[in-house]
């Protein structure tokens, strides 16, 4: 009896020590929950959530300083995913932060652009090319559609154009068959 108790105590102590050591040794860099939240956020970096980017918003959510329904680009789907991840109740998007819009990219009207570089400074993902006094262009592939370059432009030459569906990015649609429940079955 006594020996078995001793063995159990010894084992418990041993495991405790191992766990203690490994928690120090294998300490995970960064905060995994913040990264998990961040990986759900759309990375548009638009700041509509009230934070200067997705990561700061993720951090705020993790610290309980922000709600999960503040990111319009992530939309409903994003909120559902966050709710699942954090084990909290889903809530609809807070309209104060804006409405979800179709994904767009910024296009600079190259004739009007005066090359002031203000948009470059605003772009959160460095998707605008150009140097001072020369016309600027947007690397369409990198543009997240955050709209942050619009307000600083002094000549209003940047427009958001929705990405249109084409033969390449087209997807199969959800089948629109009505399931006929009323008709009597052949097999009953």
């Amino acid at each position: 009896m006594l020996t078995s108790i001793l063995i159990v105590i010894f084992l418990a102590a041993l495991i405790g020590i191992i766990l203690g050591i490994s928690s120090i040794k294998f300490k995970v860099e960064g905060d995994p929950i913040i990264d998990k939240i961040d990986s759900i956020l759309p990375q548009t970096q638009c700041g509509q959530c009230g934070f200067p980017g997705c990561k700061p918003y993720a951090t705020a959510i993790a610290n309980g300083a922000a709600d999960i329904n503040q990111c319009p680009p992530g939309g409903d789907e994003g909120i559902h995913k966050l709710a699942d991840l954090l084990g909290v109740e889903y809530k609809p998007l807070n309209a104060e932060h804006g409405e979800p819009k179709p994904k767009s990219v910024a296009v600079i009207d190259e004739k009007t652009c005066i090359g002031c570089t203000l948009c470059i400074q605003a772009c959160p993902v460095d998707a605008i090319l150009g140097s001072a006094k020369h016309m600027h262009t947007i690397i369409e592939k990198e543009c997240t559609g955050c709209e942050l370059c619009l307000p600083p432009c002094p000549v209003d030459c940047i427009d958001m154009t929705p990405i249109e569906e084409n033969a390449e990015n087209w997807k199969w649609k959800y089948p629109v068959y009505k399931i006929d429940k009323s008709s009597e079955r052949r097999v009953s």
Binding site: D38, Q43, T44, K55, V125, D126, A127, E142, W172
Partner: peptide, 25 residues
Amino acid sequence: RFAKSEIIEERQEQEQANIARERNE
């Protein structure tokens, strides 16, 4: 077909988001 193209798009979006995150960082 619908489910497949939905998943493929999601993957592409995730990839794009990863690029955007990297560029932002």
